[in-house]
Every structure is written in structure tokens, then in C-alpha cells.
């Protein structure tokens, strides 16, 4: 990919669609599947991850010239862990119910491969401004993907969206969608859609 003058807008859009971390790169599967049982959980998780992603990208980009190559992964992980601890305590203070619903998955943002992946492959090689936009784009792309899964699972599994009933009462909820296996099936469906779209575009080109 030619990277002569990365425009900030391009960094942003790239993460949202063309290089969407979940649907195209297939990264960060664990939180994607685990907290996408309702749209609200999905949104909260997506925003928390975006926050950590933007800040860690910024810090990693700032310190990229001072960190010896051998210890860079450890350094990145420690930077990420610091921000995750902040997010964990903030959510606990603001919305205790949400903190309970997401459970250990807030702490587990540390091991979300998207964040370390962006730190290693983008932020450690680029100046602060593109790195921040890259983090923001990837984070929003992740949030978008989580929302796609979360809303589909909530609508089919409970007949609701963000807790509001959207389907007629006669609709029999598909319990399987709210269960773990539903997460696997829903993600498989979205991936199928994306790979079908990709094939169509390639066939047209």
C-alpha cells in the first residue's frame, strides 16, 4: 500500500469499512462474540475499546522513538493495561449495572488483539495525528461491527432493540441467538455477507 502522505480522513474511513477489524481482518473475536448479546452491551464495549485504542495509539506513537525494539511489545501492553484499568474504574463508578453485565470483559480489553495489532503495525511507525485517527477509525469500525452483531442477536433472540420491543408480541424469540452458539452463527452470517460482497466486487472488476 502506498503510504506517501496519509490523509487523516483516509485513516478514519479505512478502519470503518475497507479494513474493518472484525469483518475484514477477523481480529478481536472474543469480545465481539461475548458481549454482543444485546445492542447496549455491544455499544458500551465498542466505545470503551475505542477510547483505549485512541489513547494507546497516541501514547505509543509519542514514545515510539525511545522504546528499544526488544521490549516494545511489553511496553505497549503496559500502556494499554494502564488505560484499561482507567476505563474499568470509570465504568464501575458511572454505570455499575453495565459493569456487571460486561463482567471481566472490560479488563480483557487488554488482550484484544486489535489494540496491540494497531500499536505494533501502525502507531509505532507513524506520527501522533495519523495514529490517533487510525485508532479512532479502527475503534469505530469495531463498534460498528459489534452493533451489527448485537442488534441482530437482540432482535432475533429477544424481539427487542436497546431494550425496546420492536417485533410484534406474537414473535417467538429464537432463544439460541442469545446463547453462546448464536454468537458464532451470527458472526458466520455477517462474514458470509462480507465475503459474498467481496467476490461480487472482484467479479465486476
Amino acid at each position: 500500500m502506498p503510504y506517501a502522505a496519509p490523509a487523516s480522513a483516509d485513516e478514519l474511513v479505512k478502519g470503518l469499512w475497507r479494513e474493518n477489524p472484525v469483518f475484514v481482518q477477523v481480529l478481536g473475536m472474543c469480545p465481539t462474540l461475548a458481549v454482543s448479546n444485546t445492542a447496549l452491551n455491544a455499544l458500551a464495549m465498542g466505545l470503551a475499546t475505542t477510547f483505549v485504542l485512541v489513547l494507546s495509539n497516541a501514547v505509543v506513537s509519542l514514545i515510539r522513538n525511545f522504546v528499544p525494539k526488544q521490549v516494545r511489545i511489553t511496553t505497549f501492553i503496559l500502556v494499554i493495561a494502564t488505560f484499561v484499568t482507567c476505563v474499568d474504574y470509570v465504568i464501575q463508578a458511572l454505570r455499575l449495572d453495565l459493569h456487571r453485565a460486561l463482567g471481566a470483559f472490560i479488563s480483557l480489553i487488554v488482550v484484544n488483539c486489535i489494540i496491540l495489532g494497531r500499536a505494533e503495525s501502525f502507531a509505532s511507525k507513524n506520527p501522533v495525528v495519523p495514529a490517533v485517527f487510525d485508532g479512532l477509525g479502527m475503534g469505530l469500525g469495531f463498534t460498528f461491527a459489534l452493533l451489527c452483531l448485537g442488534s441482530l442477536r437482540e432482535v432475533l433472540g429477544a424481539g427487542r432493540l436497546f431494550g425496546v420491543a420492536v417485533l410484534p408480541a406474537a414473535f417467538e424469540p429464537w432463544v439460541v441467538m442469545a446463547l453462546p452458539s448464536g454468537g458464532f452463527f451470527t458472526l458466520a452470517l455477517w462474514l458470509l455477507l462480507f465475503s459474498a460482497l467481496k467476490r461480487r466486487r472482484e467479479a465486476a472488476a
Binding site: 446463547l179 452463527f185 458470509l192
Partner: peptide, 21 residues
């Protein structure tokens, strides 16, 4: 051809997950 790869593995995992229930 379109389902090969991750999508197929995910469907398998879903079925396995039902079995573990």
C-alpha cells in the same frame, strides 16, 4: 467456495457450542 474459511469454522463452532450445552 464462498463459505470456506472462517465462516465455515464459525458455524462448526456454533454447533459444537450447542453440543456442549
Amino acid at each position: 467456495e464462498v463459505v470456506r474459511g472462517t465462516a465455515l469454522t464459525l458455524v462448526l463452532a456454533g454447533i459444537l457450542s450447542i453440543a456442549f450445552m
